[in-house]
């Protein structure tokens, strides 16, 4: 052991050698990683597009011309259009409260915000059935007022909101905590109203983190299957979102149409990934703020 620390040995050793493995180890690790990615990520993605186009471009396009597909696309867009802004507003409010104030039960709130990530989506869906369903807690009341939540659009929206709840808040809480309140206080002492300070100081400071989280939130809102599947009731043309529509087509052995619709979701995922990478590359500081000690 003593030789290892002899000055001569240290001086000759190149600094890189301490952390770098032998050539063949590196090669092996890289090969395994690439093989794994190819097998589990790239191959399925290629398969989606290959299957979708298996019977030509005409058959591919035909999958989107039927009324049920239109309805599914509309419903998915509608759900995302409600769930994402809702979670955007809620996420900003919650992270503002958590990052900038001290109050009793703060840790509990932080834990609760994370809950949707730790609960299986199917369970999330079931919760809504148990609360709003015909046999559920609020069922009789809803029935009496002729309101339908389960097996209808409101249920789908609620389930989606629940599942995508944490995205914005989790991104913004560390970011806002790191930024503290000094800039807002400075704005207030300069005469700005609370709203003016929020618009001109807080929002610009979190804009890229916000955009990043909205992107992820949107991808999840459009792609959510489990929770939505439980509350939807799978009524064609009425309560089918894109992921549910894919499942129905697949179960009917309509592979071309199923994969064609799936390719839409895969495309969405790819675009999301691309924009996400761009944001991460361009605004790394702001997005990763929570992880930084600063």
């Amino acid at each position: 052991m003593s030789e290892t620390f002899a000055p001569a040995t240290l001086a000759e050793a190149r600094p890189a050698s301490v952390v770098t493995e032998g050539l063949w180890v590196r090669g092996l690790l890289i090969a395994v990683a690439i093989l794994f990615l190819a097998l589990f990520l790239v191959l399925p993605l290629v398969t989606v597009f290959a299957q979708a186009l298996a019977k030509g471009f005409g058959a591919y396009l035909a999958a989107f011309t039927e009324a049920d597909a239109h309805a599914a696309i509309r419903l998915t867009l509608l759900t995302a259009a409600i769930a994402v802004p809702f979670n955007l507003v809620f996420g900003i409010m919650a992270s503002w409260a958590i990052a900038k104030f001290e109050f009793w039960g703060k840790n509990l709130l932080v834990t609760l915000i994370d809950l949707p990530f730790s609960v299986s989506p199917v369970v999330s869906g079931l919760i809504y059935v148990l609360v709003f369903g015909a046999q559920g807690l609020l069922g009789p009341w809803l029935l009496a007022h002729d309101l339908q939540v389960i097996f209808a659009v409101p249920g789908i929206v609620l389930a989606t909101i629940f599942v995508t709840f944490p995205f914005v808040a989790r991104q913004l809480i560390p970011l806002m905590q790191e930024q503290g309140t000094a800039e807002e206080e400075a704005a207030l002492t300069l005469g700005a109203s609370g709203w003016h300070a929020f618009r001109t100081v807080t929002l610009p400071n979190i804009r890229w983190g916000l955009l990043y989280s909205v992107l992820l939130c949107n991808a999840r809102a459009m792609g959510e299957f489990g929770a939505v599947s439980v509350v939807s009731g799978h009524i064609r043309g009425l309560t089918n979102t894109l992921p549910l529509h894919v499942e129905i087509l697949y179960n009917e052995y309509n592979f071309v149409a199923a994969f064609a619709v799936a390719s839409l979701l895969a495309g969405l995922a790819l675009v999301t990934l691309l924009v996400k990478s761009l944001l991460e590359w361009r605004y790394a500081d702001e997005i990763k703020a929570g992880a930084r000690g600063h």
Binding site: E183, A186, A192, P204
Partner: peptide, 29 residues
Amino acid sequence: PVQQRAVGFVFQHYALFKHMSVAENIAYG
């Protein structure tokens, strides 16, 4: 309220608005 007190406060770590130029910072109030 702080807005109506007409005080000028200089913070320990300056609390300049990062996304604004020097001129915009000074003109903020």
